[in-house]
Computed example of a mutant assay.
Amino acid sequence: MMQMSVAFNLAAHSLAAQAPDAPVIDWMGFVVVAVVTMVGAGFVVVMYSLGVRLGAVSDDVDASSPRLAKTGSYVCFAFSILAVVIGVVLIVPPFYKWAMHLFGVAV
């Protein structure tokens, strides 16, 4: 435990030595990341739960349009999977560099 506190103190002192009046934490960046995380997690949960609900409705024998509900279920699952894949691509650096290379953006 003592070694970690020494490492944190050294890191804090080196940051303070570089720019004494610059804030250590970019609070606006923190807020942006927090909001995007909450919206993204909410989107994945809503799409997955809507897909499960539409899948259950499509199996109902009294449903008015089971084919439409089944299609909607697949679309919701596809959006949920797409959001997770995009999140992984944005987080993992080799995947991010590969994706940016596909779009012709230099990283």
Rank of each mutant, 00 (worst) to 15 (best):
D26I: 00
G40R: 05
P20F: 09
P66F: 02
G72N: 01
G51R: 06
T37H: 11
D21S: 15
M28A: 11
D26P: 00
G40A: 08
G55C: 00
F43C: 03
R53S: 10
L68D: 07
V44D: 03
S14R: 12
S58C: 07
G40D: 05
D26Y: 00
F77K: 02
V32I: 05
C76I: 05
V88I: 13
D59V: 07
I81P: 00
T37P: 03
G29C: 01
C76V: 04
S64W: 01
R67M: 04
G29T: 04
D62M: 14
I86C: 07
D60L: 12
V45N: 09
V46D: 13
I81C: 02
Y74C: 00
P23N: 12
I25A: 06
G55P: 00
F79M: 15
F43R: 05
V36S: 13
W27T: 11
A34H: 13
T37R: 11
L82D: 06
A69H: 00
G72W: 00
P23K: 08
G51P: 02
V84M: 06
F43A: 05
A63E: 05
M47S: 07
G40W: 06
V88S: 05
F79W: 15
V61S: 13
V45Y: 11
A56E: 14
D59L: 09
